[in-house]
Every structure is written in C-alpha cells, then in structure tokens.
Design a protein around this nucleic acid. Structure first.
Lengths: 144, 144
DNA sequence: TCTTGAAGCTATAGCTACTAGAGACCTTAG
DNA sequence: CTAAGGTCTCTAGTAGCTATAGCTTCAAGA
C-alpha cells in the first residue's frame, strides 16, 4: 500500500494534485489508515498514471473523464476514444500553425530592433500597429 | 469621445475585458459622462490596441504591463523591450517543440487503434503506459 | 520510550485572463 | 414619452491546479 506521497512520486504527480483529482471525482476515494491517511493500491497508481499521461498529451480533464469511463467498461467499442484522440490531434495541429506564425512575427520584431531608445523601438512599434505585421495572426494562441 | 462599447468595437476587445483591464491597472480610469458612463479618447484607443496586439502575440499581461511602462518613458533604452520579446519568443519556441512531439504521439495512437473494443484499443493503452511513447514528452504543454 | 522532523490532514484562498449574470441606471431614436 | 439597447457595479464562475495555515500522524534515532 502506498501513502499519497509515495503514490505521487511513483506517478509523477504532486500530492495536492492527487487530492484535487479525488475532489473532482477523477480518482475514487481511497481506503484510510487508522490515523485517517489515504492508502492506495496498484489500481490507483495505474489510474493516476493514465491521467497524468493524458494531461501530458494535452487532453483536458473532461476528456480524460470520458476516457476513464471507457476503461471502466472495457467491453464497448473504442470508437469514442478514437474520436477524442482525433479531436485532440486537430487542436494540437491548429495550435502549432498559430504558434509558428507567432514565432515568425516575434523573430522579425526582434531582428529589426535597433537597440536604440524606446521611441524608435521596433518591438513597441510593431505592437502598437497591426499593419506592421507580416501575417495575420488575429486568431491567436492567446485568444483561445 | 467614445463610449466603452464603441471603444471595444474599435479595438476589437470586449466590453467586460476593458473594465477588467481598468480594474487591474492596465488602463487608466477614464473621464465619465454626467450619467457616470466611461468616455475614452484617442490615447485610450491606442493603448488598448497595443494591449490587444501584444495579447495576440501571446504576451502575458504582466509583460504587457512592463512594455506599457516603457512606452510611458520613451526616452530610455529599448533593451528591456528586447528582453521581453526574446523571452516570449523562447516560450513560443518551447511550446512548438512540445506540441510537435504531442502531434506525433497522437498520430501514432490513432493509426494503431484497431477500431475494436476498448480492451485492445491502443489509444487507451498508450495513455496508460508511458513506455509506449515514441518520444519523451514529459515536459509537456499541459504541465506548464 | 521519548522526541523530533517529515509527511499527512482539512479548509480556504489565490493564480491567469477573462466571462457571465443580476438588477439597476442612462441614452437615444421614433 | 416610451421602449430598446447600452452601461453601471458587484459577485461568482471557468480550468487546473498551487499555496497557506494550523493541526495530527508516522517513522526513525537516542
């Protein structure tokens, strides 16, 4: 049996995060020791590793909740899991496109900065006026 | 003079967002009409456009606060602006790297999904065990 | 056995950058 | 003059945690 600290270490998740996941119902309430401390078994570790991994892949917690409900009834079709993953892939692709445009714009800004005074700084100037931009980045990362 | 609605329209920023920016001190408190409604001039529009553009480029509000304080004293060196922009560029680059790894992993997961039942669905399996991953994406987008 | 320090407990508040709602007030066109 | 739509303040909510306070429990060394 693992304490919450050991579980967190094993799964690579911080202790308060585990308690948070329990609170929002992603992890079941574990058994407690005589002194009221949480005790976890292998299944909790597996489940937490699953959650962590999905978070690393950028899945929002609600999608993870759905994925977990799939694993909880493993007899049914995995088409639902496939749909979630495809949706996530589309989102990731879109973000890459937008970020790449931002990268180009920032590079351009920086290379044009003459290192003089703020009054004639390209960085400030570009930020002041969108017409200085090479591309349209109006549907941006920040606007998500 | 512009009302808050007209200002928002002109700058492409929603009305509650303008009030929020005022609240956190990014925008100065404007004059008011006899009926206590906010009235803005050209300088507020310029400042708001600057903020919006910087947000589109992914700058966090704190960085924008710093950039705005630079524009408020335009005589000094623009090295600080350069530093802020370079920091932002580095952050954007790092996100692209991570997202590209995520993209590859999601593609791999999806192509391997046998479209059978959850029990042999690779989507679930890959998410359950990090050792299935082609790359290490442990320093991920989600972990930011 | 006692003690000390780490780890655990609950509960609450905070973070970013907004967004949404309630209920009242102002402005303007017809 | 009235009705519609814009604006006002205030509060609370969103995601996904993180941090703090003040307490209790546990494990190891003297």
């Amino acid at each position: 049996m693992l304490t919450i600290g050991k579980l967190g270490e094993a799964a690579g998740v911080k202790v308060p995060t585990i308690r948070y996941y329990e609170q929002i119902g992603l992890l079941p309430e574990p058994d407690r020791s005589a002194g009221n401390q949480r005790l976890y078994g292998q299944s909790a570790l597996d489940r937490l590793a699953f959650i962590r991994h999905a978070r690393e892949l950028g899945f929002p917690l609600e999608a993870i909740r759905d994925l977990l409900s799939l694993t909880d009834n493993p007899g049914q079709s995995c088409a639902a899991a496939d749909v979630i993953a495809k949706k996530q892939l589309a989102a990731v692709k879109a973000r890459i496109v937008r970020l790449t445009a931002l990268e180009a714009e920032l590079k351009r800004m920086i290379t044009q900065c003459a290192q003089g005074t703020v009054a004639d700084c390209r960085v400030i100037e570009v930020l002041s006026d969108h017409s200085h931009c090479a591309q349209d980045h109006r549907t941006s990362e920040a606007a998500e």
